[in-house]
Design a protein around this nucleic acid. Structure first.
Lengths: 131, 131
DNA sequence: TTTATTTTGATAATGATTATCATTATTATA
DNA sequence: TATAATAATGATAATCATTATCAAAATAAA
């Protein structure tokens, strides 16, 4: 049974708003401004819950700290090896289904049932490659 | 300057041999049989080094623990949501270049410089979907 | 062989995440 | 509406993978 909480609402709203793939700590710093006595454990609990019910995505980065993503568009991720920011690369509908089909075919080769995908690219972002 | 060590040699050999994407702990348990007094810090140090020089790959799984992969073939990963094993899905040369080209095009849309990719799929493996 | 340098193993420190638990907030019911 | 039942919170302790430290051992160079 899911019970309403203002904390969960504010956490979800913040993640959906932001495009910088925040860590729990980043969310904590930000949300303290709205709910000064919010506990960091509450944020851990809720991002975990929100991932489970598919409202946000968890992404694993090079530094090993989880980041959270509320972008609902079809997209893949690009992490810069230098500044370690994560960029969303939007997929057009056509591209997205094309990639999904290719991946589905690959999954068929091991007779598995395909559910989710996470494509993480890395290299140098536009800014960092100019140095 | 890289100095030889038997430990590093044995660690690399074990990772290249295995196809089960071992964690550091799994490697530790195994390698103790060959080098009984090996320290777990030595394994951490060396897998990290071997990743940096591109001899093996590090993969991040759902449980947050790093696993290591010495498979040199072009492949992507599939993690079973039930048994949490990780399967390699081999890419034929043609497929591999096709995917790389598609990803290259996507990276171009954000003007970044493409270096590496990691495609992680998930769902149910052949065995687990039969239950 | 001697010296310089790197690696090792043991272990302490770190840091992100999870577990615990009394208190508080939300929902259901009388 | 008041009360009981249940779930969520905040504080903090516990966990656990990984990293840092450092004296001793191994390797390479002189």
């Amino acid at each position: 049974m899911k019970k309403y909480s203002r904390q969960r609402e504010v956490i979800l709203e913040s993640i959906k708003m932001r495009r910088d793939h925040p860590t729990v700590d980043m969310l904590y710093e930000d949300l303290k401004l709205q709910i000064p006595n919010i506990g960091i454990a509450t944020i851990y609990r809720n991002v975990s819950e929100l991932c489970n019910c598919g409202q946000i995505r968890k992404i694993k980065c090079e530094d090993g700290v989880y980041r959270y993503d509320g972008n609902e568009e079809n997209h893949i991720h690009f992490e810069c090896n230098n500044c370690h920011r994560i960029f969303d690369i939007k997929l057009e509908e056509k591209e997205s289904t094309k990639i999904k089909n290719e991946l589905q075919n690959l999954v068929n080769t091991i007779n598995a049932e395909f559910d989710k995908q996470e494509i993480m690219l890395s290299g140098l972002c536009e800014k960092c490659k100019k140095q």
